[in-house]
Amino acid sequence: MKSLSLKNLAKTYFDAYKGEHVTAIRDVSLEVPAGEFVSIVGPSGCGKSTILNMVAGFIPHSGGEILVGGAPVKGPGPDRGVVFQSFALFPWKTVLDNVGFGPKMRGVPKAERDAIAREYLALAGLSHAADRYPNELSGGMQQRVGVVRALANQPDVLLMDEPFASVDAQTRMTLQDELSRIWEERRPTVVFITHDVPEAVFLANRVVVLSKGKVLAEVDVPISRPRVWDRLVADEQFKDLSNQVLALVRSA
């Protein structure tokens, strides 16, 4: 587990279609201490994915710094695990081999990485699916695998870009419950991107509201843990914080 710090981060795209430069991120500074769960919310197009893709190393940044545990980020790497909205599981690998992929890349022998993968699958109640292929699973199950695959590689920072946006509402709440429980058990450093305000508040220690490529506000979420929807739906503190964040997002 390591800290993540963004210092005056900026990103300008060249829009080949319009033939002009577009500033997606103006000036974003953010500190995420090791073991903290931070949500970034904001209306669509405000630059959430751009930040995450730069931190993941998928696209270069145009200005500023990205430091993981104090070291600058250069390209993608296993120190930053990523969970994708589209799941991005390897269709040609079983669930077990998907989850064991990170350890395999580290050179962990087959028997050992299978054991690691099984341990993490058990964490998400997926033991029975180990030998299935991704296309044989529901969307909710696939994203459980996506989360577990990232965790099994023990990244310093876990990056999630609207991971639950493409599953049904019922499953989404279950996945949120599970992610919250897993975070409480393992305490990874997480940056979680969403446009869903209750989701952001439910999961995070701190919610960052993004607007037009800049940080509009940061809201601490001191709600006690463990957090489960059964308790939080009626929780006054949760409602107040959600309304507060929602007002900020709407003003964005």
């Binding site: 993941a56 190393g57 998928f58 390209g75 993608p76 790497g77 296993p78 930053r80 695990g81 990523v82 994708f84 589209s86 991005a88 599981l89 390897f90 690998k93 992929f101 990170g102 395999k104 890349m105 580290r106 695959r149 990232a150 590689n153």
Partner: peptide, 20 residues
């Protein structure tokens, strides 16, 4: 995204070729 997923799980050139 599959290439990105592999890269952020630590895949180098060779693994990208054989596994993706």
């Amino acid at each position: 995204t599959l290439r990105h997923a592999a890269a952020s799980l630590g895949a180098g050139r060779r693994a990208m070729l054989t596994d993706v």
